[in-house]
Design a protein around this nucleic acid. Structure first.
Lengths: 165, 165
DNA sequence: TTGGAATGTCAACAAAGCTGACGTAATGTG
DNA sequence: CACATTACGTCAGCTTTGTTGACATTCCAA
């Protein structure tokens, strides 16, 4: 019973449909973080460490400032996490060669090993979800997620994506 | 150049593709919570209050225990949030009639008003994302999110969804 | 009727976010 | 060169939101 008010998509946009989308995001995110969280709980690390390690793996040599912008936290908050990772020998911080104020961040072998472990767990769930939903659904999934990002984050995301592909 | 290894979907499942999905979830969730967070920051509330208020609105009369299971936190953590909401007159807690151990939770008028405000903000972004992505993408989006949930949460989600629709 | 299970509350603590202030080194600019 | 700015680190202190442990009340079943 669409009332053909002008666009074919209008039927989707009832508050109820939107609310279901909101709840789907909430419950899916729970699942999304559950597996790595379980691993992290056995060590002295939390989700914040996971995020840092993930993006250092993704962008080796990234600066503290860049990581800050990606994660959207304050430097004090990130610094606490980074300090423990460096102390524990998972992350290496090298003074920049061209600009010596910058610190470039790299994973050590131990860091790569942890990242791999966490990443494997998280990818496992993602792989299963992708398989069960099928390729068309996956394309739609990514399209909506991109549309939901803040513009600046979308820029960052797309830049990373295009570099990796 | 798919190598037709057995399924048409195999091409999607490179680690790189999965990693992009993971990052899309991360950045999208940032956006997803950004608008309500901004509103909450102007009051003495946080994301935990939002979640509680959302599901009490969604399931009026729900018990503390049920809310606990949905939110996936400890009862002590939820209790703190509920206490402030009750003190501030946003939530009403009624002792159960059949089982007096249970507390049934309801939003007051003030609670409904706050819920509406937060919900409007969050739905606004969701609506824009849905519009930009199109109805097919939305279907895929929801399909993948459902596949990503823990089975128990998926059950809960679907029950709520089917009741609301 | 009594003991265990379920429900919810209080207390104390931990992780991870925040603001503000400050120091240092390097860089850029008038 | 002098001075402002940038990048980073750190200290102190606070807030939110998670945790475990102990405990009161209520219900139910042996």
């Amino acid at each position: 019973m669409p009332e053909r008010q002008g666009g074919e998509t209008l039927l989707f946009l009832t508050d109820e449909q939107l609310r279901q989308g909101i709840e789907a995001m909430f419950f899916a995110y729970q699942g999304f973080t559950a597996d790595p969280d379980r691993i992290l709980a056995t060590m002295a690390y939390g989700r914040a460490h996971h995020r840092a390690v993930h993006f250092i793996a993704r962008i080796p040599g990234t600066t503290v400032n860049n990581l800050l912008a990606i994660l959207g936290v304050t430097k004090q908050s990130l610094n606490r996490v980074l300090r423990t990772l460096i102390e524990d020998g998972l992350v290496e911080s090298r003074v920049g060669t061209v600009d010596k104020r910058e610190r470039h961040l790299y994973l050590t072998e131990a860091g790569k090993s942890l990242e791999q472990k966490l990443s494997d767990a998280q990818r496992g769930r993602m792989r299963t979800a992708y398989r069960n939903a099928g390729p068309e659904a996956v394309a739609g999934f990514r399209k909506v997620l991109e549309a939901m990002m803040d513009p600046e984050m979308r820029r960052r995301y797309q830049a990373m994506r295009d570099k990796g592909t």
